[in-house]
Design a protein around this nucleic acid. Structure first.
Lengths: 343, 343
DNA sequence: CTGTTAGCGCGTTCAT
DNA sequence: ATGAACGCGCTAACAG
């Protein structure tokens, strides 16, 4: 239930440009210019105004500033799941770049729920100058609607109405499939992610194609919620496919699958090879450590904000910014078992 | 380098209360009241105004609202390290409660740097109504300065000028020390956290006292940065203390220590028992799984925002809100080795 | 219950 | 180079 935020007595009045104008003996507009319009005022008065501002501890009121300009100086970052380590890499990168340019960053998660994502974007719209949508679950139309309100940059999602920052998983995925094939795996199982995930579709299509080229079978299991629980719950189904290797949509699911396999006294990679994507915190100390694909998520978060800034500065440069990924081979992948289940 | 955020043409004009006032045939102030002052307007016109607002797709301009009221409707949450899983539990809880009350939540990390924490708070101050400081590294004086600007609620930090939300680790820590003593450990090593951490000081004093009561030696190693790397780097020093059990400041450090021990071919808990605090993502699937102490961090995040809301609503209720914790025994703790290093 | 009148603090014409 | 005046959208007196 939203609220009015109106009750307690207002805090002590803060210092305004009027205070510094009076102190220096100039008009408020001169003070304003001295503070924010380099060169539009004489060097001398600019200096005096700035000193007075510092002395008085002046801080511009962002709301007052936003009113005439229409610019709030804040950017909204919407992430699917803030507890997924993938998110905070992005958040960290975005936040650093935002601070660098003087933006305030508002981060909000939508818990994989596209309805919530859309409503959150619309309710935030008047408070922000632009959106960064990370791992959006929205369709193109919904993104277009948001883009009509404010500029949008997407991460790991391509969309006609937004600038996109993408990780290119294709080479690493192909290398992974090739490696698995070389290890004797002739039946792969892709443990799919959420239905509305753009990356999920991409990943599967690359795996399917790469497997086909190598003469390896690939089956898809899903969609699934991208959680540990879902990964664990899928163990039986994975085994039922007869696949000797499971490629999970992401590390969180892979870890779920891995721990379920451990609990079931299955050998990894003896009985089943498992891989993930993202190289999150934790994937290097599972038992065995998880083979995965690493993306420069922090850089991508930074890039997203940089593109937002460019867009807000009037630089029209819609398009795609792609980042390379890297296959990280670890202990969870090994040779296919000799005796196959469905021999 | 901060920036002016002023360049591209302003987006299409949004609908204002004037638009809906004109449409309904009332004055703007009536429209304003109908929208936000329940009861101060006739039921009939309130209904008509609301319908018009909906029809026009009206969204209040937060900046315009903030100007006369001095209330921005946003809350700042400052966390030490956003990549520490501890943080996002808090963030998630805080965010949910913030949304429930119609606040926007701004999350910012200060990377364990107290100077950055303070400067961030001061620069955010004009844009927000209140602060939540999670795991603050600030001293009381610095917190008081911030509290002079806006109400402050601290998490895991007691301070005279703020309402505090705390996890009470004492009972669980005592139980842990008791358990270790019963397992034959007669020399414990506390792997300390950051110097300016309030919780670090608390934890050590409880461990020291509990150990003393049990006739167990306790040595303190630190301060250390609360990172995996620092945990790993401390292995040698921990061994050098001759302790048979290491209690780390938090799980992140404990995991660092654990993986270093594994790399050094040490048996855990055979040669060394290891414990952490927080029960973060990952601590249940280390090898062996990590004994730790769990706190209801999400609830604490929620509580912090609830208290912020109370403070902003004029309810003066400074004080402390304490949450219980729970010892989670897992495989990383076992009997002390027979042959002690310094026998 | 409702309309009128003033600002909130700042940027921005338009003058000078 | 600087000042005066206006308006951004909304809330808050103050009438009626």
């Amino acid at each position: 239930m939203p609220n009015d935020h109106s009750a307690s007595p207002p805090p002590a009045r803060r210092v305004t440009i009027y205070d510094i104008a009076k102190r220096v003996g100039v008009s408020p507009s001169t003070a304003s210019r001295a503070l924010h319009k380099p060169g539009r005022v004489s060097k001398a008065t600019e200096e005096r105004v700035k000193q007075a501002a510092a002395a008085l501890g002046y801080r511009a009121n962002p709301a007052a500033r936003a009113l005439p300009t229409g610019r709030t100086g804040t950017i909204a970052l919407l992430v699917a799941d803030i507890t997924n380590p993938v998110s905070f890499e992005i958040v960290r990168g975005a936040e650093r770049e935002a601070e660098k340019h003087g933006y305030v960053l508002v981060t909000s998660e939508f818990r994989e729920d596209h309805a919530k994502e859309a409503s959150r974007a619309h309710s935030l719209a008047p408070s922000v100058d632009a959106f960064v949508l990370a791992s959006s679950r929205l369709d193109d139309e919904a993104i277009a609607k948001i883009a009509a309100l404010n500029p949008v940059v997407t991460i790991n999602r391509e969309s006609p109405s937004a600038f996109s920052v993408l990780a290119d998983h294709e080479p690493a995925l192909r290398e992974l499939v090739r490696t698995l094939a070389a290890e004797g795996h002739d039946r792969l199982c892709y443990l799919a992610g959420p239905e509305s995930s753009w990356t999920d579709a991409r990943r599967w299509s690359v795996i399917e194609a790469a497997a086909g080229e190598r003469g390896v079978e690939a089956v898809r299991l899903g969609p699934n919620r991208p959680t540990r629980k879902a990964g664990s719950a899928a163990l039986e189904a994975v085994r039922a496919t007869g696949a000797s290797a499971a490629l999970a949509y992401n590390d969180v699911m892979a870890i779920g699958l891995l721990t379920a396999a451990r609990d079931a006294r299955l050998s990894v990679p003896g009985d089943l090879s498992i891989t993930g994507i993202d190289d999150i915190f934790g994937s290097d100390f599972t038992a065995p450590p998880l083979t995965t694909i690493a993306a420069p998520l922090e850089d991508m978060g930074t890039a997203a904000v940089r593109h937002v800034h460019a867009a807000l500065s009037g630089e029209r440069e819609p398009g795609i910014d792609t980042y390379p990924t890297q296959l990280v081979m670890r202990g969870s992948v090994g040779p296919a078992p000799r005796t196959k289940g469905k021999k």
